Amino acid sequence: MDDKDVQEQLAEHSQNINALKDNQFSLVAQVQVLQAALASALLHQPDRQAVLNTFEQYMRVAKESAPGMAARMEALQVGIASLLGKHQA
C-alpha cells in the first residue's frame, strides 16, 4: 500500500468517524426531547402508581434483555420513577 492509498483510507475513516459522531449527537438530541415529553406527560398522569408498576415491569425485562446496558438504564429508571412519585431511600 503506497502513501496515497493510506491517505485516502485515512480520509475515508475520518469521514466515517465524523458521520458516526453526527449520528450520536442526533440520537442524544432525540432522547433529550423524548425525555422532556415523557416527563411532561407523567407529571399530568392521574394514576401514577399504575404507570410506575408497569414501567418497573418493562424495565426488568429491558435490563434482563440487555444486561450490558443495565447500569446505564438504572440511572434513567430512577429519574422516571421519581417523576412517578417513587422516592429513593
Results as ranks from 00 to 15, higher is better:
residue 41 A to D: 06
residue 59 M to D: 09
residue 56 E to K: 07
residue 80 I to P: 00
residue 2 D to T: 14
residue 51 V to Q: 01
residue 86 K to R: 09
residue 45 Q to S: 07
residue 79 G to H: 11
residue 5 D to F: 13
residue 35 Q to R: 00
residue 9 Q to N: 14
residue 45 Q to H: 02
residue 83 L to P: 01
residue 32 Q to N: 02
residue 69 M to S: 01
residue 31 V to W: 04
residue 55 F to C: 03
residue 60 R to E: 13
residue 33 V to P: 00
residue 46 P to A: 04
residue 78 V to L: 10
residue 20 L to Q: 11
residue 88 Q to G: 10
residue 27 L to F: 04
residue 87 H to E: 02
residue 49 Q to D: 13
residue 74 E to A: 12
residue 4 K to G: 11
residue 61 V to E: 11
residue 53 N to E: 11
residue 58 Y to P: 07
residue 60 R to L: 14
residue 82 S to D: 00
residue 48 R to S: 02
residue 41 A to W: 08
residue 49 Q to R: 04
residue 59 M to V: 11
residue 46 P to V: 01
residue 18 N to S: 15
residue 45 Q to F: 01
residue 15 Q to R: 14
residue 26 S to C: 07
residue 84 L to C: 10
residue 33 V to E: 00
residue 12 E to S: 10
residue 2 D to R: 12
residue 67 P to A: 06
residue 57 Q to Y: 13
residue 12 E to H: 09
residue 25 F to D: 05
residue 83 L to K: 03
residue 45 Q to L: 00
residue 69 M to P: 00
residue 52 L to R: 07
residue 9 Q to I: 12
residue 61 V to G: 10
residue 87 H to W: 00
residue 77 Q to F: 12
residue 75 A to S: 08
residue 8 E to C: 09
residue 70 A to I: 01
residue 60 R to M: 15
residue 40 S to W: 10
residue 23 N to W: 13
residue 27 L to K: 08
residue 49 Q to Y: 02
residue 3 D to N: 14
residue 43 L to Q: 12
